[in-house]
């Protein structure tokens, strides 16, 4: 559930996600009502359905745009942390080779130390 607050009062707050849920709920109820519309209400139901669809789409388009602006900037920052981990993996791969060399070197030194 999205947490950003769209409206705030002393009594209550509502999130963007909750607004979308309310609109979707209304759309769903009206869609059911469309199948058996109350007398003289068919046109009103059709209009309301089209209006809800338009409003919800506007909220989503605007919201997605704002979120994408933030996430677009964060992508490159996260890439830096990823690059560090890739370098770490490369270091460890190389160090595995150095460890083998180190063991060999230490054995050699250990064997000739008494002669020094």
């Amino acid at each position: 559930m999205a947490k950003r607050r769209t409206a705030q009062s002393a009594a209550s707050t509502i999130t963007v996600g909750e607004v979308e849920d309310l609109l979707n709920g209304a759309y769903s109820k009206l869609s059911i009502a469309l199948r058996n519309p109350p007398d003289g209400q068919l046109d009103a139901i059709v209009n309301a359905l089209n209006l809800i669809e338009w409003v919800l789409n506007q909220i989503i388009i605007q919201g997605l745009h704002q979120d994408a602006q933030i996430l677009g900037k964060l992508s490159s920052q996260l890439q830096n942390a990823t690059d560090e981990l890739v370098e770490l993996k490369n270091d460890l791969t190389q160090l595995a080779q150095v460890a083998a060399l180190g063991a060999s070197l230490l054995n050699t030194i250990g064997s000739i130390l008494p002669l020094l």
Partner: peptide, 13 residues
């Protein structure tokens, strides 16, 4: 927040 919202926007649509 923006990631949760963005995914939820598309879910709502």
């Amino acid at each position: 927040a923006p990631l949760e919202e963005a995914i939820y926007h598309v879910y709502s649509s």
